[in-house]
């Protein structure tokens, strides 16, 4: 069982252009900023928006615009779970779960509810459930229909932070017992890493990066991913032992190779000084602290200057450097701390 999708959707200035293959049993997280086309992708796979292209699931052609084939949503056996559960408000929890069943509806639905520890909610109306419970029921309602492809649209985004972890665990457990293909749309990297085998990063309707979560965060290929991973991402032209940045600055970095490259600098590798540092670092320049943000035990300092970067320092360093928004500092980055890879 696998999914091959080549999807083009054109709508009011926005275009989605994607080539996606997902293998049997895989959970793929589609990650991207708002407006990247994540939800449109899910809706296209569910057959809810017309597409140009081809979608093949498990050997069945669900969409093929070349021959005018379009299998309607209700015949696809594709399950979709929306952000805010969308349980039918006029039906009990049991009726909601039984909705998609064909035979022995009530007994089967009750069995699923019991196994998920929601048996006592069977007769309750969705409006009386907590957000977490409602989302779990919504997931069950879809799973009982045994979809071949399960689409989850930001399943945890509408929940309170306090219940998110619990529902994520439940989701993770349910997904593990589900044999079909799972595609999860999210803008929360934690959700993606916790639930997915592979990440697909979508920006402005295009896939910018795909791979294991660890690979994607180690070698970001877009500002969005770099921000998620909390690292500085620069782009320029490699010149063996240095990089000419797109902004015109030169950054010393060994083994930079040739051609278009990305350079990643971890914020902890960005050192700040009151006076010009002496000695080894070759990348030194003056910058201005634009703002400071306390993150746990560390302080992230956003710097403007020839190379805009984020530095991460300890609170005591902030005191010693008399750092504040608007303060002038010297910035140093060791050439060996810069990781360079082809763009």
């Amino acid at each position: 069982m696998s999914l091959h999708a080549v999807i083009e959707v054109e709508r009011g200035g926005f275009s989605l252009d994607i080539d996606l293959t997902v293998e049997a049993g895989e959970t793929v997280a589609v990650l991207g900023p708002n407006g990247a086309g994540k939800t449109t992708l899910l809706r296209a796979l569910a057959g809810l928006v017309p597409i140009a292209g081809r979608v093949e699931l498990d050997g069945d052609v669900l969409d093929d615009s070349a021959v005018g084939r379009h299998v309607p949503t209700e015949e696809r056996r594709v399950g979709i779970v929306f952000q805010d559960h969308v349980l039918f408000p006029h039906m009990t929890v049991l009726e909601n779960v039984a909705f998609g069943l064909k035979r022995d509806r009530s007994r089967v639905a009750r069995g699923w509810l019991d196994r998920s520890g929601l048996g006592d909610k069977a007769g309750v109306m969705p409006g009386e459930l907590s957000g977490g419970q409602a989302q779990r029921v919504a997931l069950l309602r879809t799973l009982v229909t045994e979809p071949r492809l399960l689409l989850l649209d930001e399943p945890l985004a509408a929940l309170d932070v306090s219940v998110r972890a619990e529902v994520r665990r439940e989701l993770s457990r349910q997904l593990a017992g589900f044999t079909g293909i799972r595609i999860l749309v999210t803008h929360d990297p934690l959700e993606a890493i916790a639930l997915a085998d592979r990440l697909v990063v979508l920006e402005q309707g295009k896939v910018v990066q795909t791979g294991l979560p660890s690979e994607v965060t180690a070698r970001p290929r877009s500002r969005f991913v770099a921000d998620l991973a909390g690292v500085n991402l620069l782009r320029g032209t490699g010149k063996d032992d240095h990089i000419e940045l797109d902004g015109g600055e030169v950054l010393a970095a060994p083994e930079s190779g040739e051609g278009d490259v990305f350079a990643v600098i971890h914020p902890r590798a960005v050192a700040l000084y009151l006076a010009r540092p002496e000695g080894t670092p070759r990348n030194v320049w003056r910058a201005r602290a634009e703002d400071l943000d306390l993150r746990g035990e560390r302080v992230r300092v956003r710097l403007s200057g020839p190379v805009p970067l984020v530095a991460e320092v300890t609170p005591s360093a902030v005191r010693d450097l008399r750092l504040d928004a608007g303060a002038e500092v010297w910035v140093a980055v060791k050439a060996t701390e810069i990781s360079v890879y082809p763009a």
Binding site: P72, V78, G79, V86, H90, F99, G100
Partner: peptide, 28 residues
């Protein structure tokens, strides 16, 4: 919210079932 009808379709309901069991009750 059109997602009620879309959810029903994804759960395998044909147009008539979507109308009778979801659209009409929600419109009551």
């Amino acid at each position: 919210d059109s997602r009620y009808e879309e959810s029903a379709r994804a759960l395998g309901a044909n147009s008539w079932k979507v109308f009778a069991r979801v659209t009409l009750p929600l419109l009551r």
